[in-house]
Design a protein around this nucleic acid. Structure first.
Lengths: 180, 180
DNA sequence: GTTGAAAAGTTCAACAC
DNA sequence: GTGTTGAACTTTTCAAC
């Protein structure tokens, strides 16, 4: 896998957004499971030489298909054995401020705006149920938080790479205030 | 950034489970954000030499704190712009079979057993709402699936590394059959 | 996209704290 | 025992084909 990869890390968003062939897809699949592969190994799995896959990977990075590479930590082994999903009902107000404030909390792993019988969905990983209690207290201290429902994870059977479809943090998201 | 890291990849689970000092915690924090750092760079951020951090990282891997390194893909850019969370209500039956079958579906990113007004929580990433429809159809074809409630993600404001607290796939999980 | 060679990074060994 | 320095080895990465 790529060392510091100082070459062309610029996010050339539109640049060459061509449709992804089978090679690209295989490369993405392999790297999503293990980004620690050498280009030689990756090449042999894909059926290409090392410089060729390297070129591909460089393009996939440059065009934003690959957002980055991260280490996957083991929650329990790193002192965060407690996982929960929290549904949050918010009233009218400005969400973006709230979301930005929420992002600062290290316990929060995901924040989504959803359609359904709740407004916002949170993924929380922390040390204990007490820590969740503290987080909920901080939530209720924020303006516009109406109610929460927590789903405490009993066991995790699958947890794969998040494919980070991160919405570029807008200053004020559309539909902040509901029409009456 | 470690290359193939052929050295001691054996999961020495209990071996030297000492409490993680500040160096370790900083290393984990940095690698959770960017696993593509060189050991030299990581070392300078942490205040250690390259061989020293390498030794630490090797230990963190060996003791299971670091499960692996993965590439983070951009959902929309890789043809999967549609994200949803699905609550699944199951009846008595054997869950482990169902979970194993579910794990095979590539659209599924997470499967958790939770406490609350539902049994199972799914994270699904796919190409479109039609694809979700197809997935739900396959769900309902499985035995023991009583009902589902889907929460379609409108926008994602935060999505960090999953710290994979993966439960070792048990042959038959505890409490498969509820006492009456 | 491939081959062969320069540059960079990882990793080992011997030493110092 | 854990960290540092300097050197061997592997991998990335460039250039020419």
């Amino acid at each position: 896998m790529p060392n510091s990869e100082k070459t062309e890390i610029i996010r050339n968003k539109g640049l060459e957004a061509r449709p992804l062939d089978t090679f690209d897809r295989t490369i993405l699949g392999e790297l999503a499971v293990d980004a620690g592969l050498s280009y030689a190994e990756l090449g042999s799995r894909v059926g290409l030489s090392a410089p060729a896959v390297h070129e591909r990977v460089k393009r996939l990075r440059a065009t934003g298909r690959i957002c980055g590479t991260v280490a996957v930590l083991d929650g329990p082994a790193t002192g965060k054995p407690f996982l929960a999903f929290v549904h949050v009902d918010t009233t009218g107000g400005s969400k973006s401020r709230t979301f930005r404030a929420l992002s600062e909390l290290p316990e929060l792993e995901e924040i989504h705006s959803v359609a359904g019988d709740t407004c916002t969905l949170l993924k929380v990983r922390c040390a204990s149920s007490r820590a969740l209690e503290g987080l909920l207290a901080r939530l209720y201290a924020m303006p516009g938080i109406k109610a929460t429902r927590s789903y405490v994870v009993l066991s995790t059977y699958l947890e794969r790479t998040p494919q980070a479809g991160i919405t570029e943090a807008l200053e004020e998201p559309p539909m902040d205030e509901a029409p009456r």
